[in-house]
Amino acid sequence: MIEGKKIRKVFKSGIFGGKTVVAVDNVDITVYDGETVALVGESGSGKSTLGRILLMLIKPDEGRVIFDGVDLTKLKGRELRRFRTKMQLIPQNPEEALDPRWRIYDSIAEPIRIHKLAGSRNEEEELILELIRAVGLKEEHLNRYPHELSGGELQRAVIARALTLNPKFIVCDEPTSMLDISTQASIVRLLVEFQKRLGISYLFITHDLELAEVIADRILVMRNGKIVDERSLH
């Protein structure tokens, strides 16, 4: 279970930091284990900022992020990194998650290497093959660079990478908004299948209310940095 309590984030912009934007304004949010919560709202309403704060990729100005009872805002360094492996981001643009200069294989292998999950090269390769088959990619894709894959294939590679560390919580930030509807359907199906199999919980950010209604257990509506509406669906 992940909780955000009284979260606030203000950005300063303009040359002298003269303008301020309250991106997230005193928000309380909870995502229970195995649950899919859709976060909808117009662009600029603060969805991405809130999602990244829950992942501790952005530091909130105020408030706390609590993961399975542990206050992450109080942790530092190695301790925080240990929790980071349990939380992943699938961004709108795959370029944000995959280094354009690396082959797909190395991008997926990176977290495995950092966290020493494989005892040998062979073991690493087996792990990666299992992962990419699970997301519907083929071996031939592993040797390519990101610009040599289609949008749907890239997003599958990003999902494979996000799954390497067995996460418990994933923020999906408009993962299909740049894809075709038929590709969108296959990616969303894939995410739902993994949730059933692995018990992951999702914060699914989208501006497509119809999509939110099909996949979510609960919908939160965000406007001007605040959560202004909440609906249960199932």
Binding site: S150, S182, S186, V188, E210, L211
Partner: peptide, 19 residues
């Protein structure tokens, strides 16, 4: 038909296979 069926409002069913 496959395209329309992949709309969220019509069941979100992907077309099998790839282009």
């Amino acid at each position: 038909r496959g395209l329309l069926d992949s709309l969220p409002s019509r069941g979100l069913k992907p077309i099998k296979g790839f282009q």
